[in-house]
Design a protein around this nucleic acid. Structure first.
Length: 305
DNA sequence: ACAACCGATGCCTACAGAAG
DNA sequence: CTTCTGTAGGCATCGGTTGT
C-alpha cells in the first residue's frame, strides 16, 4: 500500500465517486477503479459499496478513512520537517478564507511571507464560513480564516481579532453624518445583505432577532462589489466587516459608519485549525506570521475617504 | 424507450527494475 | 545492452441504473 493508494482512496471517499475523484487526481477512471480494487483486495475487505450513481464508504471504509487521513497528515509533517532540516523551507500552504480578507489582507500578507520564505507556495480558496469550517474539519485545508465561526470540539481557534460590522452608505446618505447608526434606523432604507448562512449574514440576523427588528433586504447577494455598487447608486445601506469595508472606502464612493449594537460589535475573524492535527511546519510558521500582521492592521476606522 | 451517467473490465502501452 | 517481468495507467466498451 503506497501513499498514492491513500490519496486515491481519500479522494474517492471525499467525492463519493470514482469518476469525479479521477478528474481531481488527473488519472483515468479505469486506473482509479483498479487501484481501489487492489487496495480492497490487499486489505481483504470492501471499502466502498458501488451504486449506480457513485460509491459509498462501507463501515470498514470509514475506519480505513481515519487511518488514511492521519497517515497522510503524518507523511506531510515528516516531509516538511525534512525540508526544514535541509534548510529549503519548501512546501505548500493550503488556506481557505472568507472573501472580506481578499482586498486588504491576504495579498499583502502572502507577499511579505513569500519574501521571507521564497520556497513556500500558497493554495488559497475563498468560501463561506460554514464551508471553511467543513474543509478544516475534513482535513482538506491547513488553515481556515472564518468570520464569527461556531465553536466545535474538532476545531481550534488559534487566534481571533475583533471585527465589528460597519454600515456602508453613500456620503450623501441621510445617516452619513451620524457617529453611529442603530439597526432600527437602518431598516428605513433600501438594504443589501450577504446571502443567508454566510457568517456576517447570520450575525446580522441574530442581532436583528435580539433587537426585535425585522430586516427586509431589497438585495441579497454573495458579491461584496455588487452590494457596494447598490449602496453607491441606490442611497441604500449594506453591512460589511471592517477589513473589507476599508477597501471599498478607498474609492470614495461609500463611507462607513459604526453600528450601535452589542452583537454586531462582538464579531470576530478567527484562524481555525483541526484540533487533533499537527500542521506542516510551513503552515505553522505562516499562522504565527499572519497573527502578527493582522494585529498590525488594527487601526482606527476612518470615514475620511 | 432513450440518453446520460456510473463503475468494471479487456486490451494495450510506457516505464522501472532485475537478470543475463 | 537486451530481454523479461511487474505495475500503473489510458482507451474503448460493456452492463446496470436513473431520470425524462
Amino acid at each position: 500500500m503506497t501513499n498514492a493508494h491513500l490519496r486515491y482512496f481519500t479522494a474517492v471517499a471525499r467525492h463519493g465517486s470514482i469518476r469525479e475523484a479521477a478528474e481531481e487526481l488527473h488519472v483515468a477512471q479505469s486506473a482509479l477503479s483498479r487501484q481501489i480494487q487492489k487496495l480492497e483486495h490487499e486489505l481483504g475487505v470492501p471499502l466502498f459499496q458501488r451504486h449506480a450513481r457513485g460509491v459509498e464508504l462501507t463501515s470498514a471504509g470509514e475506519i480505513f478513512l481515519r487511518h488514511a487521513r492521519s497517515s497522510l497528515r503524518q507523511d506531510e509533517r515528516v516531509r516538511s520537517e525534512l525540508d526544514a532540516l535541509k534548510g529549503l523551507r519548501r512546501g505548500t500552504i493550503n488556506l481557505q478564507a472568507i472573501e472580506s480578507l481578499v482586498p486588504g489582507v491576504l495579498p499583502q500578507v502572502i507577499l511579505k511571507f513569500s519574501a521571507r520564505y521564497p520556497g513556500i507556495t500558497f493554495n488559497v480558496t475563498i468560501d463561506r464560513t460554514d464551508r471553511i469550517l467543513a474543509a478544516v474539519r475534513e482535513g482538506r485545508t491547513d488553515i481556515g480564516l472564518a468570520f464569527y465561526p461556531t465553536v466545535e470540539p474538532e476545531l481550534t481557534s488559534v487566534f481571533k481579532m475583533r471585527e465589528p460590522l460597519v454600515a456602508l452608505m453613500s456620503p450623501r446618505h441621510p445617516l452619513a453624518k451620524k457617529a453611529k447608526v442603530s439597526l432600527a434606523e437602518a431598516i428605513g432604507y433600501p438594504i443589501a445583505l450577504p446571502l443567508k448562512n454566510s457568517g456576517s449574514r447570520m450575525l446580522i440576523d441574530l442581532a436583528c432577532k435580539a433587537a426585535g427588528i425585522f430586516m427586509m433586504p431589497l438585495l441579497e447577494t454573495n458579491s461584496i462589489q455588487l452590494r457596494v455598487q447598490f449602496v453607491h447608486l441606490n442611497n441604500g445601506l449594506t453591512f460589511h466587516s471592517r477589513l473589507s469595508a476599508a477597501d471599498s472606502l478607498s474609492t470614495g464612493n461609500v463611507i462607513a459608519v459604526p453600528i450601535r449594537d452589542r452583537i454586531v460589535n462582538s464579531a470576530t475573524i478567527e484562524a481555525i485549525t483541526h484540533s487533533s492535527r499537527q500542521l506542516p511546519l510551513a503552515a505553522e510558521e505562516f499562522l504565527r506570521f499572519l497573527q502578527g500582521e493582522m494585529q498590525n492592521l488594527r487601526e482606527p476606522l476612518s470615514n475620511a475617504a
